[in-house]
């Protein structure tokens, strides 16, 4: 089946000025690849500050002016140019952003959902979509500041669902919600996938991602290091040593930390960015590491888990 979205070797960098005149180019995302097919939830998991949100902004074509993007974005088999993204975003491609600050603070929820349409059909649609997400009729009259965190999230999802998107991008949709509310929100995404949308879920919470995602792309220091099936995690079929370390660090598993910290943008050495912390590193890890197919998924590692210890 043709994927809804294909991202191939995407890189995003920023041009910054230091001390006024010194220019430097800061690579934030490097060589990111992933695919999303219709009916599927794909999670991108990485720690906060690792540049995950930029992926969403890159796909939508709303990166800030001082950034450069390289690589290929293919949407429904055709290149996703900035012009095409501008036409599709908010319609076929919808974003569920991080928080209430993405709503217009001076506009009530109802008109915000209807986007300027005032006919009876639009009213019925907005009412139906609010009801679908458990929000009463009175929500239409509320301003964003009158919504709780969980309600605001549901309004944002309602706004995206109203367009019946083919690709839905959700950026950190759960922080600040308790487990039950977060579970409900994630359930809505799964539902939209069942109705045929491709869902890209960007999050730092591996445990929550595993509850709804079919596949998981793991992000480390701006690179995708592994694409795995969600079922690979509990089954012990992980490929990359970092993914394995993430899994082992969960409180429900070993709660075992590894030492060191993730390098920030521009701090990575040559070769594998995880090598300094990796139990399986070898001399060749300082060279170029390709993304290779392994056990139905993909891994960017020369000495993946399960293989011989170097």
């Amino acid at each position: 089946m043709q994927p809804v979205l294909e991202v191939r070797d995407l890189s995003i960098s920023f041009t910054q000025y230091q001390g006024g005149t010194r220019r430097r180019v800061l690579p934030v995302i490097r060589r990111l690849s992933l695919t999303v097919t219709a009916g599927e939830v794909v999670a991108v998991v990485g720690s906060s500050g690792s540049g995950k949100s930029l992926l969403a902004h890159g796909i939508l074509g709303i990166l800030p002016y001082n950034s450069q993007m390289e690589g290929e974005l293919i949407y429904q088999g055709q290149p996703l140019t900035p012009q095409r993204a501008a036409r599709l975003r908010g319609r076929e491609i919808a974003l569920v952003p991080q928080g209430v600050t993405y709503l217009d603070p001076l506009m009530q929820v109802g008109p915000q959902l209807r986007r300027g349409r005032r006919d009876a059909g639009a009213r019925a649609e907005s009412r139906a979509v609010l009801e679908r997400y458990g929000l009463g009729r009175e929500t239409e009259e509320r301003y964003p500041f009158e919504l709780s965190g969980g309600m605001a999230r549901r309004v944002l999802i309602a706004s995206a669902a109203l367009q019946a998107p083919k690709l839905l991008i959700a950026d950190e949709p759960t922080p600040g919600l308790d487990a039950r509310a977060a579970g409900r929100i994630l359930g809505h995404f799964r539902e939209l996938a069942q109705e045929g949308a491709g869902v890209l879920l960007i999050t730092h919470d591996l445990e929550l991602a595993l509850t709804i995602a079919h596949r998981v792309a793991v992000f480390y220091a701006g690179e995708t290091v592994e694409e795995a099936f969600a079922a690979d995690f509990p089954a012990g079929r992980l490929r990359h040593p970092y993914t394995q370390a993430l899994w082992n660090a969960l409180p429900g598993n070993g709660f075992t930390p590894i030492s060191g910290t993730q390098p920030g943008p521009g701090e990575e050495g040559p070769g594998c960015p995880f090598a300094p912390r990796c139990p399986r590193r070898a001399a060749d890890c300082a060279g170029d590491i390709p993304l290779i197919e392994a056990a139905g998924g993909r891994v960017r590692c020369l000495h993946p888990e399960g293989g011989k210890t170097p």
Binding site: G46, S47, S48, P175, H204, L206, E207, A245, L246, A249, L250, P251, F255, T256, P257, I258, T261, Q262
Partner: peptide, 8 residues
């Protein structure tokens, strides 16, 4: 707000 490794 932290990843599992940093949390542990």
């Amino acid at each position: 707000m932290l990843d599992p490794i940093t949390q542990a």
